[in-house]
């Protein structure tokens, strides 16, 4: 191996919590931090950009801006300053979904999250969203009572909480948006007959056998089954 100089890994410098480390080029922020010796118990999850657990704050070399993204989806670059956020301690309001009918409330979102009235349209939330959502626009839609628009614009939110960490008005964008989507789902969207049918089938025990089979499988077989799964679901069955 020593004679093949080309294959030697090119290294970059990163600063984790202010301390300098040398890590191989081409890693994500998450794997670079792990290479440097950090072990993630919280602040990491699916590693596929879906779960929103690995919110990270960083600054690039020679940039004045703080940037936000997901650590599992962002490449580590030379000269980066990094910190990982394990959790966002934002309050999520409790509500009874049966009692938040938008037909009966002019503005149910404002009712549960009155701080949306403090929005100054600074757009910091939008700029910090790793999903590139129009976060400010859905907060504004929520303020004017437009639940459908709030739900639609926030549909791809993965609840990482970066918007909330940065908001000068202390708005809980991701919890607000989740409430909007739930209300929209319950009160505005068409009821799915297929879902009802499937629920009845489950109740009737149609899948009991298959479930039992899965429960009794060894991990190796289960893994194989998972790898081979059909994402779209088979026709009738």
């Amino acid at each position: 191996m020593a004679e093949n100089e080309d294959e030697e890994q090119e290294m970059i410098e990163i600063f984790a919590m202010g301390k300098k480390y040398e890590v191989p080029k081409g890693l994500t922020i998450m794997t670079a931090l792990e290479y440097a010796g950090y072990k993630f118990v919280r602040g990491c999850g699916c590693r596929g950009g879906f779960c929103g657990a690995c919110a990270t704050v960083f600054r690039k070399k020679d940039e004045y801006k703080l940037r936000m993204d997901l650590a599992c989806q962002t490449a580590a670059e030379d000269g980066m300053y990094l910190v990982q956020l394990p959790f966002v301690p934002a309050v999520r309001e409790e509500y009874d979904i049966e009692e938040v009918d938008p037909e009966e409330h002019d503005n149910v979102l404002l009712d549960y999250y009155p701080e949306i009235a403090r929005c100054v349209s600074c757009n910091t939330c939008t700029k910090s969203c790793p999903q590139d959502l129009d976060v400010m626009d859905f907060v504004q839609a929520a303020l004017r009572g437009d639940i459908e628009r709030t739900a639609d614009l926030s549909f791809d939110c993965i609840q990482c909480g970066l918007c909330t960490i940065r908001c000068p008005a202390d708005i809980k964008h991701y919890h607000l948006a989740q409430m909007a989507r739930r209300i929209h789902g319950k009160y505005n969207q068409e009821y799915s007959d297929e879902l009802q049918k499937r629920l009845e089938e489950i109740e009737e025990g149609k899948y009991d056998e298959k479930m039992k089979e899965l429960i009794e499988m060894c991990e190796e077989d289960l893994r194989e089954r998972y790898e081979e799964r059909d994402m779209q679901g088979e026709e009738e069955g």
């Binding site: 404002l110 009155p114 701080e115 009235a117 403090r118 303020l143 009572g145």
Partner: peptide, 8 residues
């Protein structure tokens, strides 16, 4: 809303 926004 304008009352709440104004007050806050």
């Amino acid at each position: 809303q304008l009352a709440v926004v104004g007050c806050f």
